[in-house]
């Protein structure tokens, strides 16, 4: 499946099985930067729904599964797909699609036409989650 090419701010990708094997735009992820993205309460806001193994983080959600150990449960390609657009896997998924701009309803004008995370941020998040073993 090929998606996203029409939207200027999202990078095209290929889904194989339940994974996106190739890094978006061939970018290299940085785990330290990804850790900051995951903790960012303004943009990605992953911790509103998930917990990570970090005792300094307070008020983490439990709408999604704990991310501890996700790097051993899933390959980087599988994680990439779940961050880019989990509805490709489960159409009814509660988790937002972080690298998609189309098919949404009533988006706040400030966010219209932009993905929550850029391709580089997605790669950074993938690199960080891969370290949670």
């Amino acid at each position: 499946m090929l998606a996203g090419a029409a939207a200027a701010q999202t990078m095209p990708f290929v889904v194989q099985g339940d994974a996106i094997e190739a890094p978006l735009a061939g970018l290299l992820g940085d785990a330290a930067r990804g850790g900051a993205v995951v903790r960012n309460r303004e943009s990605a806001n992953c911790l509103i729904c998930h917990s990570i193994p970090d005792a300094r983080e307070r008020f983490m959600g439990d709408v999604g599964p704990p991310l501890e150990g996700v790097g051993s449960r899933l390959s980087q390609g599988q994680i990439r797909l779940r961050v880019v657009d989990p509805t490709l896997l489960h159409p009814a998924s509660v988790m937002p699609a972080y690298h998609r701009v189309e098919g949404f309803t009533r988006v706040d004008p400030r966010f219209r036409g932009r993905p929550v995370l850029t391709a580089q941020e997605v790669e950074d998040v993938v690199a960080y989650l891969a370290t949670l073993r």
Partner: peptide
């Protein structure tokens, strides 16, 4: 209706996830 950039309906939080923690 799923709404917004985060693409969630009211019911996805208030039916499917009532009782869970959001932050």
């Amino acid at each position: 209706t799923r709404q917004g950039q985060l693409n969630l309906s009211c019911g996805q939080c208030h039916d499917e996830n009532a009782g869970r923690r959001l932050r």
